[in-house]
Amino acid sequence: MAAAAVSSMPAAGASGAKVLLRAENAVKHFPAGLGATVHAVDGVSFEIREGETLGLVGESGCGKSTLARLVTQLLPVTSGKIFFGDVELTKLRGEKLRQYRRQLQMIFQDPFASLDPRMTVGDIIAEPLDNFGVMRGRKRNARVQELLSIVGLNPNFNNRYPHEFSGGQRQRIGIARALALNPRLVVCDEAISALDVSIQAQIVNLLEDLQREFKLTYLFIAHDLSVVRHISDRVMVMYLGKIVEIADSVETYASPKHPYTKALLSAIPVPDPRVQRGRRLVELTGEIPSPIHPPSGCRFHTRCPIARLPTPCAETEPPLEEKRRDHLAACHFSSDV
């Protein structure tokens, strides 16, 4: 493990890799009262390839957390399909869907809210095992201890309660719970956003080690593009319920094909004063529009520095299409970015 301290950027999952999860035009609308509708996720299609880390970034209100819940089917889709392997998850209900949760686990944002305060750490980690009646008695407890040491905690902590642990330790507990059933896909929803910088690094490294060890596939969601780029093979950028770009993470930075991605990249401060002072901010005008009344045409046209108005940007919605090999973007003028 130590030898891997410096390695080359992981190669993008070749297009030939097996697709583990696929979303087809997935839509989630929420009623917002008075007949209004929040277009939280508004027709997204993408795939997650076996063994890769797909990063998902976007600012607040872009729909990334809702998308995480559609992928894990904690929320039903309004329309569209989600396939896990060859199985259409969106068709399954009740017990059949529940059985798929074994393979689809989730790590949550808030390490303080995501653990039941009345349960011991051992019971929390064993909950997935108990829910599927996988192991009982001594075998179950041995598995709990094994999981604790896998995530770097003392195996004898199983009788303690969550409030006795720090944020980083609690997140390790949440990771152990997600791993209990040997899932194939783990959705990390802002799993490190609530942690201190030095602890974030611990958890990112842990997630990378676990992926290698257990051949996991991640959907890694965060608002911090630098962390997402670091951990992901491919990066997917969302804006107002739509995917605007999907590309290899090196390419995302080197040659973004959507003006929003470019603006997002330019806005992230680099912890190096000499570099940071030379960088130019792509300033976005205005505010993120409301997902209740998303703009016509390209949803980004109200803030876009290169938009041509009104035609075509305010009238025609640009499709998410391949601009280069394995590099998708939804922009009429991606060559101008």
Binding site: Q99, R101, Q105, R177
Partner: peptide, 10 residues
């Protein structure tokens, strides 16, 4: 979130 986590874990 912990209730959501319980649902997610089946």
């Amino acid at each position: 979130e912990f209730v959501e986590a319980a649902r997610a874990s089946g």
